[in-house]
Each structure stands twice: as structure tokens, then as C-alpha cells.
């Protein structure tokens, strides 16, 4: 297998996203194994580019600095990547499986005709063949995916957190400025602004004890019983995505990839199934205690302690025990 490993680096408001470091780390491993070049692509202002040292993690960084495209623009990113791919024929293209990545990668695949495997949790090379590992049915099953024809290259979006950032000796770090494609049509989409929905009455990222509820709470009106539990324990109420989707709690309570990452000393997960998007948000938590009626709930795989019971029965028992 020849051809670079091409990594698309995501930057938001000038700082490089954590997932990009993870991709570079994995790419480094693959490059070492296959003895190929590690090339990164960065679109954004040079100032932000230089303020981090990520470019040393690649052999080459292709930098497009254009004040028109300081913020992510999918069409521009796509055209830039497509141009590079057509010219340089990398063996693999790695993109983070983030909302931007989900916008970009299929667009690149459609324009280049390269096969695409999304939301991968691992990339393997077995007997010269590239294989991706991803999940099905919300994490209930794993699947190993292969490509019909990877000779022209292949594209992966990688789930953030799948690879850890491992220190490795700096690579070449050659910076190659590139230009925006000529005759660029006016992009049909335009960045307007960022909005922080995380601001709210309560900052769950600062709490030492989080009492977190999931779909298992059943109904908005029952949340009060848990709010009381949190009050008694001196903790703060947080929740998983379905609770916010149903409008039971405002978004600033949400823990998970599309919510907040939290690092409490103790995380009490009540009626939460343990979908990975939620679990990703508690990676930094100290001790996780999970309560769920279903003994097979995925949360029990990642929790430190588990209670297979109805969350309200558990809550009532705690309240009673504390009254004494």
C-alpha cells in the first residue's frame, strides 16, 4: 500500500479539536506500519495554526489560509480535499466523525468515488487489506467492514475517543501553503455564528456529584422526585439526551457528546441506558454508579457499581436511609 495517510484537521474558532490529535496519533501508527507519509490538511488562519504544535505530528501539513474561510465551510473543505485526493492519491483519508465530519466525508466520497466507512472505532490492516470496525444498533453489535475496491484509496470517519493521543517523536512537520481552488463558485452556504447553548442556570461541569436521569424517568412530572434526591444528597441534576429531546429539561443539563463533558467525583446514572454518546461525556468522571431496571443495559459495562432496580425505588430507599 502506497500513498499518504491524509488527515483532515478540524479547527473551531482557532483551536484544533481533540479528535484531530487522536486521528494523527492513529495515522502515525499506520504510517509507521506501512512506511508511508502522514499528511494533514488544515483550513484556517495561520495564527491559530501556529499556536498549536499539531503540525509536528505530521510529515506535511497542507495549509489553506484564506480570510474567507476562517470558519468551517463544507464546500470549500470538500473541494480542497477532493483536489488533494485527485492529485496525490492518498491510501486513506481520516476525518473525525463529528457533525462537520459527517457533513464533509460523504461529500468527499461522492465527489471522488472513494469508498467510505463511517463512525469507525478501529482501523485494521489484515493481510494487506484495510478493515474498519464500527458498531450497529446503537452499540449492541460490532461489524467489521471491508471495501470492494480500496486500490484508489478509502475514507474513514472515526468516532472521537476511539483512539488515544499517544506521544510519539515529532515528524517532519513541513508546512505547505496551498491555494483555494481557482474559479471558486460562490459557496452556497455561509457560516453565520456560533451559539453557546450550554449557558444556563446551572453549570453541571462544576458539580462534584451529579444525579443524572435518562429516559427511564418516564415523565416530566416525575423529575421533581429526583431533583429532591439531588437536593438531599447535595448534588446537581443532569441528564442524557432523550430527556432534553422530550423537552423535560433544558439543554444545559445534558451530558454527552452533543452536551457537556463532566468530571464529577461521583456520577449517579439513573435510568440511563448507556449509549456511547452519553458515556463519552462521563469519560472523566471519578466513580460511576448506575441504576437501571434492565440488567443488560450497556451502562453497566462502563459503570463502577451497578444496581439492577427501578430508579424510583432506589431513590426512595436512599431518601429513607438518609432520613435516619
Amino acid at each position: 500500500m502506497t500513498g499518504d495517510i491524509l488527515v483532515f484537521v478540524e479547527q473551531r474558532a482557532g483551536s484544533v479539536r481533540e479528535v484531530s490529535y487522536q486521528l494523527l496519533s492513529k495515522a502515525n501508527q499506520i504510517c509507521a506500519e506501512l512506511s508511508v507519509r502522514l499528511t494533514a490538511v488544515f483550513i484556517g488562519p495561520k495564527a491559530s495554526f501556529l499556536s498549536s504544535d499539531f503540525y509536528k505530528k505530521a510529515d506535511r501539513v497542507l495549509v489553506l489560509e484564506d480570510e474567507r474561510f476562517g470558519d468551517f465551510n463544507c464546500e470549500i473543505a470538500r473541494d480542497v480535499m477532493v483536489g488533494i485526493i485527485k492529485e496525490q492519491r492518498p491510501a486513506m483519508v481520516l476525518v473525525g466523525h463529528t457533525p462537520w465530519g459527517m457533513d464533509l466525508a460523504p461529500a468527499i466520497a461522492a465527489k471522488t468515488g472513494l469508498p467510505l466507512s463511517t463512525d469507525c472505532v478501529d482501523i485494521k490492516i489484515e493481510a494487506g487489506k484495510v478493515k474498519a470496525v464500527r458498531q450497529l444498533y446503537g452499540g449492541k453489535l460490532f461489524a467489521r467492514v471491508v471495501f470492494k475496491d480500496e486500490s484508489k484509496g478509502c475514507i474513514f470517519t472515526v468516532r472521537p475517543g476511539s483512539f488515544s493521543v499517544e506521544g510519539y517523536p515529532d515528524r517532519m512537520g513541513e508546512i505547505v501553503p496551498i491555494e483555494a481552488p481557482k474559479d471558486l463558485p460562490e459557496p452556497s452556504s455561509r457560516f453565520v455564528e456560533y451559539v453557546d447553548t450550554g449557558a444556563g442556570e446551572v453549570d453541571i461541569t462544576q458539580a462534584e456529584l451529579l444525579v443524572s436521569i435518562g429516559r427511564g424517568v418516564g415523565e416530566k412530572e416525575r423529575i421533581e422526585e429526583i431533583q429532591e434526591l439531588a437536593r438531599i444528597l447535595g448534588g446537581v441534576v443532569s441528564c442524557s439526551r432523550p430527556v432534553v429531546d422530550k423537552g423535560w429539561l433544558p439543554k444545559y443539563h445534558q451530558v454527552g457528546t452533543s452536551g457537556k463533558s463532566v468530571k464529577p467525583k461521583v456520577y449517579l446514572a439513573l435510568g440511563i441506558s448507556g449509549a456511547f454518546q452519553h458515556v463519552a461525556g462521563i469519560a472523566g468522571a471519578g466513580t460511576v454508579i448506575a441504576v437501571n431496571k434492565d440488567k443488560k443495559a450497556p451502562i453497566f459495562r462502563v459503570a463502577d457499581y451497578g444496581v439492577a432496580d427501578d430508579l424510583f425505588a432506589f431513590s426512595d430507599a436512599i431518601k429513607k436511609a438518609l432520613k435516619k
Binding site: K140, A143, R144, F147, G306
Partner: peptide
Amino acid sequence: PTEIEEIYLPADTGGAEMLKGDPS
């Protein structure tokens, strides 16, 4: 362009220490 080579169940990797007994 993509094909599933194999589907398998996740490995049972220990997981939580289950606390058993009366709710109290």
C-alpha cells in the same frame, strides 16, 4: 462499495460491580 465481513457481539469486559440485596 462497502461490505460487512463479520458481525459479532461485544466482549464482556467485566463491567460494574453489581450491588445486590434489599433496597435499603
